[in-house]
Design a protein around this nucleic acid. Structure first.
Length: 109
DNA sequence: CGGTTGACCAAGT
DNA sequence: GACTTGGCCAACC
């Protein structure tokens, strides 16, 4: 059947849209706070960070794959050490608190 | 409606 | 290259 899930126009909050976008990033690939904002047609990269902090859909929504634009880790609700460990487990090399070459791992939306 | 809070960013020191 | 500053913007109270 057709998708009838939108009987009403439900406005998704900014946070919900962040989660929807991020859920498309596969294991082994990365994105940034500002990249998510850009996909949403917004410049609210700070608000993206706030959304990640609240993320109720973890680990379905892989907020550990979101980094700062300069390759540093940014933050993580469970601590940046846990974030680094998860990324390494996905094959992403981290040196001195930064992803070695972020451009090589950025997901194309 | 105004003020506060950030898992940010860019430019300056 | 670490640290500070001003700007940015959505969510929350």
């Amino acid at each position: 059947m057709h998708n009838k899930s939108k009987h009403k126009k439900q406005k998704l909050s900014f946070n919900e849209r962040c989660y929807a976008v991020l859920s498309k990033v596969p294991k082994g690939q990365l994105t940034t706070y500002s990249a998510i904002a850009k996909v949403l047609g917004s410049r609210a990269y700070r608000a993206v960070g706030n959304a990640m902090n609240k993320n109720p859909y973890a680990p379905k929504v892989p907020c550990h794959r979101v980094l700062r634009k300069d390759g540093s880790l940014g933050g993580y609700a469970q601590g940046i050490a846990a974030k680094a460990r998860l990324l390494k487990a996905e094959g992403i090399p981290i040196k001195a608190g930064k992803v070695v070459d972020l451009a090589n791992y950025l997901h194309k939306f």
